[in-house]
Design a protein around this nucleic acid. Structure first.
Lengths: 229, 229
DNA sequence: TCAAAAGTGTTTGCAATACACCCATGC
DNA sequence: GCATGGGTGTATTGCAAACACTTTTGA
């Protein structure tokens, strides 16, 4: 191709809805915008695509540039094209959702942002542009995916308890789950390895910790599964 | 907005994978290209978006312009952005899938096409550009959708037999279904109205015809359902 | 009378659901 | 010793799956 490699595509942007799981809550990553439009306001991390990259690559780059997160689960969600969605000129945006384990990835402001933060998914957010719509559609897609792909696991630390895992599923699906049935089901998938580690320093019986069987995990991720709870 | 209304967005196109059901086969609509690139070759109907329209609107317009079909079921599938997917310059394309009842909609060439035809989904097609990839991903999405949305019905004539409906599902899912179980399940959804009409002129027992209960249909389409067969 | 598709119920097994009590730990 | 969450098993139900013969019609 004959394009300058660092040149942006002026009418095409990528916006990312980054989900994380912290303090037993599903959270979304927001960045404080350094430039106009909406300078100083909290928004979804986004940016323009370059002529030299695919949109998947753009999403990876933008996440790294805005929030310093790398090497995470990414999936395209939808392309938004309302004529007035961006001020003054026509910009179409492709939305991605991403899953991050906040313990593994340190979040910090990148070149185009002055600040980053996690925000509880349950609390109302006053989004600029059409980011409310984008956020909702990403959440909807996450809820669908989690039912037949084991992607929830991207959000947890290496060692975790079954209660943590259950709590994650409850946050994503927005509904309580039965403890015994959940355990039966999740252990039946044979993708967890029981460890000899236990929770420490809690004022109740310590929970046993588990990790993923990464081979079984990869297989299941490809095959898909049916998680009906 | 201040754009000329009929001006195209040169780096953004829409491609449509139009499915139809005819002669008990699932078919895809192809058009013969009138212009370069790939002039004279069969491809998916597509075209550039305009500054004055959303992508959904572009898909509607393009389907009408290329193939004379209107008022059909449309859903966005995915955005394709490989750098070399289009020759000579960077063009990103947004794929849609559409469902058409060939009996209701007469297909004929539009301004940008010299010919149109239906092509059996099972037969290999030699697609230009990345249309093979686009087609595959649309078919995958159709297979998913049909399991929890009653969209299959968009493809049938007003009056139809249960065998036709079953055959449609078999074509989409690519697997045979049990007749008795299929009927039990589909009648259990209570969205079909039994008519007093029967098939005519067939050399075997005439099949009873049904139509959709459009109210129940609308409700189910919104709620989603679980079609496991 | 033959060919070809329509139509029709029952049984079986599995998986989802509902449900309640004891255990270990820190304070 | 008490508050807190961890951990465990069974009974019931509903749904998916498997399966074969009779009916109707035109040729």
């Amino acid at each position: 191709m004959s394009h300058d490699t660092k040149q942006i595509i002026k009418n095409l942007s990528v916006d990312c809805v980054v989900f994380g799981f912290e303090n037993n809550n599903l959270e979304v990553l927001l960045i404080k915008r350094k430039r106009n439009p909406e300078k100083g306001n909290w928004a979804l991390p986004g940016g323009f695509a370059l002529h030299s990259e695919t949109l998947d690559q753009a999403a990876v780059r933008i996440l790294e540039e805005t929030s310093n997160v790398k090497n995470i689960y990414l999936e395209q969600v939808h392309t938004f094209s309302e004529i007035d969605r961006f001020p003054n000129r026509r910009v179409i945006t492709v939305a991605y959702f991403a899953l991050v384990n906040p313990e593994k990835h340190s979040i910090k402001p990148g070149i185009d942002t002055t600040d980053v933060k996690w925000h509880n998914v349950k609390d109302k957010i006053d989004f600029p542009f059409d980011h409310q719509k984008i956020f909702k559609s990403a959440l909807r897609q996450l809820r669908q995916r989690v039912r037949y792909k084991p992607i929830g696991f991207e959000l947890l630390p290496k060692k975790f308890s079954l209660s943590q895992l259950q709590s994650l599923y409850e946050c994503i699906l927005g509904q309580p789950l039965d403890k015994r049935n959940f355990r039966k089901k999740i252990l039946g998938l044979k993708m967890l390895i029981q460890l000899d580690d236990y929770q420490k320093g809690v004022a109740h019986r310590a929970a046993r910790l588990y990790k993923f069987d990464s081979k079984a995990y990869t297989v299941l991720k490809k095959q898909g599964f049916n998680f009906q709870l």
